[in-house]
Design a protein around this nucleic acid. Structure first.
Lengths: 147, 147
DNA sequence: GTCACTGCAAATAATTTGCAAAGCA
DNA sequence: TGCTTTGCAAATTATTTGCAGTGAC
């Protein structure tokens, strides 16, 4: 397992601006703040957590704008959805190739960087065109183990 | 990728009876029929699909009984939840070690049997106690490709 | 007979949608 | 200005819960 690279927020925000320009989408205040909340953390927050945090800066932001914006950002490829075993969708602005450890007790999600990426199963092309491969390791995290 | 082994419904139903006896749970008509619906297919139906099918035989079965029963069966280890990227939870009575191909267009889930199981990432023990490892390959299935 | 299980109804959580007003390019 | 995006409110979808009656062992 390789160590996690540091988060470069400025780079991520620059990617947002560029992606918006490229796709004709507008860089609105809401979009910027919602993306910033996802971009600045590696804790994979869910939609409601993002909503609560953004609301501190933009008190009039609505719940559905958060959902719509997260969907747009995902479509632009700037963030990705992580679907844990339980609870709502979680979001991740980490575009590096990586996988996840999901705690089945508290729901915490930690990035896993593999030394070698798992190869696609041979013969998978008979099932369809592959878009992505996700490895999810489930278990009890250190924090839950000791508590 | 290894070929999928055939489904042995009788064996699966026998496992249910034995697991109920072992855990003190009762083999009710509803529980039997709900399990049978999951056990006899490899299409990974969701809770509502199971509900619709069981209702044909047990017209008074309720939606919440299906949810509660699926949760019990999962706890007993007779079925497992599959969480696709979109939509509700799907259920699977296949207890052999396997992974999934999920079609991002129609939501179809197909079992994948690997020649070699992916090894746990080295150093994963620093994150916590591992319970399971799931590989999910996402893409467009053959059926959606041609339509 | 006892205790787990079920059906009903209603609650909750998570997410989506229609529409008119507001804001970026 | 024109078209995207937002906020509001309400609708959906997925799932869970309390409770009294029912049934398996």
């Amino acid at each position: 397992m390789k160590p996690s690279p540091p988060i470069d927020i400025e780079q991520r925000l620059a990617n947002l601006t560029e992606a918006c320009r490229a796709t004709g989408m507008r860089v609105t205040h809401q979009r910027l703040e919602i993306f910033r909340e996802v971009a600045k953390t590696s804790e994979h927050p869910d939609a409601d957590t993002i909503f609560q945090r953004v609301r501190k800066r933009l008190p009039t932001v609505s719940h559905d704008t958060v959902y719509r914006t997260l969907a747009s950002l995902e479509e632009m490829g700037l963030i990705s959805r992580v679907d844990p075993a339980r609870g709502g969708a979680r979001y991740d602005a980490n575009c590096d190739k990586h996988h996840h450890f999901v705690c089945t007790e508290c729901g915490a999600i930690t990035d896993i960087y593999l030394q070698y990426e798992p190869p696609l199963p041979e013969g998978i092309e008979n099932l369809g065109d592959v878009e992505s491969l996700h490895l999810q390791v489930r278990g009890i995290c250190q924090n839950c183990k000791t508590n």
